[in-house]
Design a protein around this nucleic acid. Sequence first.
DNA 1: CCAACTGTTATAGTCATCTATAACACCGAA
DNA 2: TTCGGTGTTATAGATGACTATAACAGTTGG
Lengths: 138, 138
Amino acid sequence: MSAPLHIHLTPGDEAPLYRQLVRQVVAAIASGHLAPGARLPSLRELAKTLVVAPLTVKKAYDVLEERDLIETRRGQGTFVRLDAGSSSREATERLRPLARRLLVEADLANVDPEALSLLLDRERTRLREERETREEAS
Amino acid sequence: MSAPLHIHLTPGDEAPLYRQLVRQVVAAIASGHLAPGARLPSLRELAKTLVVAPLTVKKAYDVLEERDLIETRRGQGTFVRLDAGSSSREATERLRPLARRLLVEADLANVDPEALSLLLDRERTRLREERETREEAS
DNA sequence: CCAACTGTTATAGTCATCTATAACACCGAA
DNA sequence: TTCGGTGTTATAGATGACTATAACAGTTGG
């Protein structure tokens, strides 16, 4: 068995399907919705749910494994690593370019540092609410 | 004549060339390095400098024009719009998904909200320093 | 007019992405 | 062992993104 993983993909989006999937699984892990040790849906199962080819799912899982977030066991399934998120060095490196882009776009929109801080707080709250909503649904 | 536009592209990067170019021009506009009304390098001139095809530069300029940041005049050149950055609605919309990604990655790396705030401050300072360094060089 | 600049467009080749199909290898339970 | 699940790999094809080349069209100044 495996967690239901409320994921929604948008074909034809700017980001390819497998990258959308990567981001949403990362979000699920970060939010605790996918706990360390949890089993992810199998390639074929998730592929059927999302109506994509199994290879597309595998490609996403490959990226996640490359980031040391998950671990695959042939014949058993795919699991969230127990130390997922502990290798903060790699994840922190991911933060800087994102932060830069955010700062540049904020500057362009004449958004003050304080206003940006408020926006982040608001978005943080929204993320928490979404998580709680999902937990109620389950 | 046109501003020198210190830009560096990385072929083979995850982001295609024309998008890298878009980001860096946006940064130049946001930082004031490219003032409203300023003329951007011509397609062929910038293409020659960056060692890419003129069409690649045009594609980047197309995106920037779509975002109402620049304006092209056939036979004359490409210019930063006088009201660049004033349509903050569009730019603010760009902020939210970026903020979400940052928050998710921060959460994954066990980065507190306060630590994230500090990181943003640091990066803001770094951006300012880079801008000043460029101004000295010119 | 004409020459030298500007942006624009058409064409074509390369590559990433996604899909579909199939075969293979491993694990655990009946 | 056998069966049904798991991940893995190889192949091939369609589509679209990306880039390069070249020809086209407007603008300016001599």
